[in-house]
Design a protein around this nucleic acid. Structure first.
Lengths: 213, 213
DNA sequence: AGCGAAATCCCCCACATGGCCGATGCCACC
DNA sequence: GGTGGCATCGGCCATGTGGGGGATTTCGCT
């Protein structure tokens, strides 16, 4: 059934129509072969262990298990697999997460069939492919330096979360069962570390940069 | 080429693979026919005016022109068309926007081929189809009542935006070239209308509910 | 013409805030 | 065994905050 030199590809996406479109892409290429499909991370893991593909096209945002987590597990158990992240989003966080999980490439879903095929062949040969937008996100992340709030201690994050809830210093003190002085000291340190001058800015910055869980 | 009784469908999506998957869906149904494709709102408008389809499958988030805006324009110029919103997102705002723009149905991209075909036939007959998640979003929006901040005046919104920027009352007064009393009065009214007791809560609420532009 | 909503301004006051000084334990790391 | 980071506490003080009272003008709608 499978010819020796074809690249065996597994598709992971929770949308039937996307899997179907990708399958059509693959079928049109003589050197590519659809080895399996999965609609979430858990299925992907099982399928990959079973069919031992060369390349996995992995959507990142899926129910049950995120693509990055699935990629990590797959790469642990099947080190010969190359995972290509294939998603609609170009958020810095997603890109970093996917690449840290071991994905060799990061493509956006607006790729053409030709680009996708080339990326699959490249991945199979161990060469990475990055969508321009993903590259952009990475260099932006690098040039921005560590994001604000990186040096907050655990306690300070805790206090920041309470500030976002609208608690006053006395309120924070009561909630954490410490003195007002302590709460105030934490808040002052937070303001200083975030480089802002009042709690309003701190709250805005925390929410806009998602510093709190 | 086109048989008389087949439902003529136009696909609008910026992702090649999705269009390809949808095209495969349609081809598998004897009573459905792919009448045209477009990769953004502007193209969709042109294609619809040209081919005069029965149903349009419309992605909502696209470059160039949002799906809702495109739907509105298409329905103005081609009143006989039925637009089905087809997207990955179930945000209340997107659902409302799409339906207000005149879409008859709202489906998520995880629909099966069968469900999609049935929704297309229903739309062609004038019957709407709502994904359960979309329905959920609507009843939630209805039960929540008007969202907080609905009764803010234009000036108050302006002040709220400055609060989010971290400005103090004197700072707001200076920026708006009014007295501190006025700025303070606006802030007090905002806190009262939002049902919160300090500006920290107001800022958190404004950001979490996107009350500011 | 009248009414109400909105925006503008004033005073007072209790409290919170944020910056500044300082201090004490604790724990990890070198 | 010191050194430094962290959490904890105290006081002082200028300023900001939020609620209370009231007041005016302008504008639109009835």
């Amino acid at each position: 059934m499978s010819e020796p030199n074809r690249i065996r590809v597994v598709i992971v996406d929770d949308h039937d129509m996307v899997r179907r479109g990708l399958a059509a892409f693959l079928k049109a290429k003589a050197d590519l072969e659809l080895a399996g499909e999965a609609r979430n991370g858990k299925e992907a893991l099982l399928v990959c262990e079973e069919v031992q593909p060369d390349v996995v096209l992995m959507d990142l945002v899926m129910p049950e298990m995120t693509g990055a987590a699935a990629a990590k597990l797959i790469l642990e158990r099947c080190p010969n697999v190359q995972v290509i992240a294939l998603t609609s989003f170009q958020e810095r966080e997603l890109v970093q997460e996917a690449l840290e999980a071991g994905a060799i490439s990061y493509l956006l879903k607006n790729v053409s069939a030709e680009e996708l095929a080339e990326a699959i062949r490249a991945a199979h040969a161990g060469r990475p492919t990055l969508a321009p937008e993903a590259t952009q996100a990475l260099i932006q992340a690098a040039s921005e330096g560590p994001r604000p709030g990186h040096d907050l201690t655990a306690r300070e994050r805790e206090v920041l979360a309470l500030m976002v809830e609208g608690l006053t210093n006395p309120g924070i003190a009561e909630r954490l069962v410490v003195s007002r002085s302590t709460a105030k000291a934490h808040v002052s340190n937070i303001l200083s570390k975030l480089g802002v001058s009042n709690r309003a800015e701190a709250i805005a910055l925390a929410l806009q940069h998602k510093l709190i869980t």
